[in-house]
Design a protein around this nucleic acid. Structure first.
Lengths: 144, 144
DNA sequence: GAAAAAACTTGACTCGTTCAAGAAAAGCGG
DNA sequence: CCGCTTTTCTTGAACGAGTCAAGTTTTTTC
């Protein structure tokens, strides 16, 4: 995906094309599941004058228009990823907080049929797997 | 469940029985999915002198020992519930943040078989349904 | 190119949560 | 039942992700 594609992506979402927004999109592509401060740091490597507030605004705008996806596992700050619209899920390490993508084996829309929704109108089922990442599972096994 | 049961519950988890802990357990039973400040307020109706830090400590200890379950949907503060060990899930209102319990129709351990876990050792699959609660879905339909 | 609208910078601020030190209470052995 | 040890609680300060607000700059449109 080239520079131009991000421009089109922004325009198709009725968002103005600005240097901070392009830099944020590149940063999120470069570092999937990065948190806000990581995005800010990554953005500043190419656009040193971008404010932290701009990054918050941009990530909010991109999330609202569906260009990026915000995930926020319990105990973690907000993280962002470019991969949207494919209904994938995440596995989170209880020890170090690392996040990886997971495609659910059950199907495209896992568990979307809840048994009793108490009258809620459901539009998404989000699955978060909890466990230990390869590094943490081996190190904790060694200490026990 | 009586007062005595909470005492046994605490002792069986190797936790000392204290007035704040019993009050927190009663508060969480009274108000499922209450956040920390609601728990604090509920606790203080019966134990006015309990500090906010004590509530944080108690909720942390109870969560660590598995007596209560902490849930933290994206964009929400931490919430707590007594119902543990039955693998139920939650539906969260995007508009007002209301939470309700949901039993997944797929089975007891939904989606626990992820296709590719990248070497993670998974011990739990947490499902969060997103949508609109009855009140918010009717009011937003009226405004459109 | 000028005007209007949207986006960005700067800097202060909120609020849930955590940290730290000392006081109080629970549980254990005598 | 009483003192000792450990855990828990109180008090009060601090931290940090995220938000708010005012004014300036940039993008877009005509």
């Amino acid at each position: 995906m080239k520079q131009e594609d991000f421009e089109h992506l922004l325009r198709s979402a009725d968002l103005r094309v600005t240097r901070p927004r392009l830099a944020v999109l590149r940063a999120v592509r470069r570092e999937p599941h990065a948190d806000t401060s990581s995005v800010l740091a990554a953005v500043r490597t190419e656009e040193p004058t971008v404010s932290h507030q701009a990054v918050y605004d941009v990530l909010g705008a991109l999330t609202d228009s569906g260009l990026v996806r915000r995930i926020q596992p319990a105990g973690s700050v907000a993280r962002y990823e470019l991969r949207v619209g494919d209904n994938h899920h995440h596995v989170v390490c209880r020890s170090c907080g690392a996040v990886a993508d997971v495609d659910c084996a059950v199907g495209v829309r896992p568990c979307l049929d809840a048994s009793d929704t108490h009258g809620f109108v459901i539009d998404e089922a989000e699955v978060t797997y909890w466990g230990l990442c390869p590094a943490c599972s081996t190190s904790s096994a060694a200490t026990s």
